[in-house]
Computed example of a mutant assay.
Amino acid sequence: MQRAGCPACQAPLRQDALYCAACGTPVGAPPRKPRSARLPWVLSGLGLVVFSVMIAVLVQRGSVTRIGDMTMTGGLPGEAAGGPAAEGPAGGAGMPSMEELAAMGPRGVADRLFERVMREHEGGDFERAAFFIDMALQAYDAVPREEIDADARFHVGLLRLLMGESGLAREQADEILTAHPEHLLGLLLAARAADFEGDADAAEALRSRIRSRVEEAGGIPDLPEYQAHRTLIEGVMQTDGGEGGGGA
């Protein structure tokens, strides 16, 4: 089947021709590929990004300042407290595979990186913890805003404290308390920031609010974020003024 002649030399053109057979003038555009045809390239690109991150983990080095002897998390979802971490891909404890990372979504990846930072920090390996801090913060920045809840802000605040950025940690506490004025994690994060800044009176006032809230509720409320960090809250309940409610 033929169509109108070439606009340059008027030679006859085939219906599906992209170039004039006589003079080489382009006479058509290649057909658009369906989106499904690009999927393998997209997946390959994502795999390369994840692989690059895992390689960066192995080669990056940094330092981090430990904040006293505080246990930062008081327990992590899916982690046995104080238990040995299994070696995973890239020699990292508990590092998920690329397939697992892809299935987690942005929030799952951010939480997993947070867990890794805190596990290394609590184990005393501050240099290894520092490998993951920037990546964890960047991961939380990539989480859709509607998925940033009080638990995520608490995680970001603890990461900021590990970096010595108590002001940014307080900002996260303020965000939590603005939405939920008596949220235990908001009060706890604010108390930790006050500890870091040497304001013992403010820290104890915040911990007193935590104790009052738990006593009024007849115990630690059964919210997922409270149970994930239950040991920290119990540590506050076991103090009676003048002492920080740090580790379990």
Rank of each mutant, 00 (worst) to 15 (best):
L43N: 06
R145S: 15
G124I: 08
E182N: 10
E87P: 04
I55S: 09
V64D: 02
V109C: 14
S166F: 01
G241F: 14
G82F: 10
A129C: 03
G235I: 01
R38D: 11
P106W: 10
A190H: 05
P34M: 12
A217E: 08
A8T: 12
A110F: 07
F131T: 02
R128E: 00
G219V: 02
A110I: 08
Y19M: 12
P40A: 11
E204D: 15
A248C: 08
G94W: 06
M135C: 01
L232D: 11
R128G: 00
D201W: 08
D199N: 15
R153H: 10
E127M: 00
R35Q: 09
G123W: 03
T239L: 05
R160I: 02
G241Q: 10
V109N: 09
F114Y: 15
A103F: 09
P31F: 14
L206Y: 06
I233E: 12
R207T: 03
T178G: 09
S52I: 15
P7F: 14
L13A: 14
S212D: 12
E100N: 10
P34F: 05
S44E: 12
V109D: 08
G167P: 01
A203V: 03
A190T: 00
E127W: 00
I176T: 07
R32T: 13
S63G: 13
E243A: 09
R32G: 07
I210S: 01
F51P: 00
E165T: 02
A56S: 14
G124Y: 12
G62P: 00
R160C: 04
T65F: 11
V143Q: 02
G94T: 03
L46S: 07
E122A: 05
R3P: 03
G242T: 03
D141C: 10
G157D: 05
D111I: 01
P77M: 11
G92V: 14
A86M: 13
M70A: 14
F196L: 02
M72S: 04
R207E: 11
M237V: 03
